[in-house]
């Protein structure tokens, strides 16, 4: 029985891409304000899982409830949760033809109906939060990868979502830029927003996560607190996975 604090519930979710089963009976509960890190080998279904939460992918069977809205395989409720869920992508996906400030104000103006001034003020607040207010008038391509990803985070924050999903946010970055993005995410984690992060950054996971989820071949193999899983992983597969990414 989910308690009243539960913001996301996944119940036996299944998803296929052709013959390939990307998600097998996945069940997960996330409470409001919780910070969840999902890890696992590539192709294990981590990205598919979070993409189902904001319905970039539709699931075939099972039930997903996000902030009280039930997304089942048959009814199309996706539009009801869009403003609740923000997403940060591996490839940033900034709008290349728009300046940083226009990237940030587009959603608030067109979707939330803010005036231009209000949207700009909000955008500047979040640009300061990700520490690049001086880049507001530049185009995305004039920024470094790390800066672009921070703009993408600010763009999501401008919609003031309750839940923020991160799909391998540092995987496309040069090593020296990973830290600046993780710092911003760590700061965000202390703000009370619900975060679900797909990442291989185990240092970040250890620092920030309330819950670790390990996936392999479309299934959730193990969940636990960082202390539990880092010191004594229950499953052989998770132990092996941790060994590989921590001792490379």
């Amino acid at each position: 029985m989910p308690d009243s604090n539960t913001i996301i519930t996944l119940n036996n979710v299944n998803k296929h891409f052709g013959d390939f089963q990307a998600l097998k009976n996945v069940s997960l509960e996330v409470t409001s304000g919780e910070r969840v890190v999902i890890c696992g080998p590539s192709g294990s279904g981590k990205s598919t899982l979070i993409r189902c939460i904001n319905q970039l992918e539709t699931h075939e069977a099972g039930e997903i409830t996000v902030d009280g809205v039930t997304l089942s395989a048959t009814q199309n409720n996706a539009h009801k949760i869009k403003a609740t869920v923000g997403m940060v992508f591996q490839q940033f996906n900034l709008f290349p033809h728009l300046s940083v400030i226009d990237n940030l104000t587009l959603g608030p103006r067109r979707v939330l109906g803010l005036s231009e001034e209000a949207a700009k003020a909000r955008a500047m607040t979040y640009l300061e939060r990700v520490q690049i207010p001086d880049q507001a008038d530049k185009l995305p391509r004039q920024l470094s990868g790390g800066q672009q990803q921070r703009v993408a985070i600010a763009r999501s924050l401008c919609m003031e979502p309750k839940i923020l999903l991160f799909d391998e946010p540092t995987s496309a970055l040069d090593p020296e830029m990973i830290a600046e993005v993780l710092d911003v995410m760590t700061e965000l984690a202390s703000s009370g927003i619900t975060m679900i992060v797909v990442t291989h950054e185990m240092g970040f996971a250890r620092r920030v996560a309330d819950k670790m989820v390990f996936m392999d071949q479309g299934e959730i193999i193990e969940t636990g607190t960082p202390e539990q899983v880092f010191t004594a992983p229950k499953s052989q597969r998770f132990a092996h996975f941790l060994e590989q990414i921590l001792n490379h």
Partner: peptide
């Protein structure tokens, strides 16, 4: 790219 549609969708456009 598909990413542009997904980004637009993620800010509810």
């Amino acid at each position: 790219s598909k990413g542009q549609y997904e980004a637009a969708q993620s800010i509810s456009l």
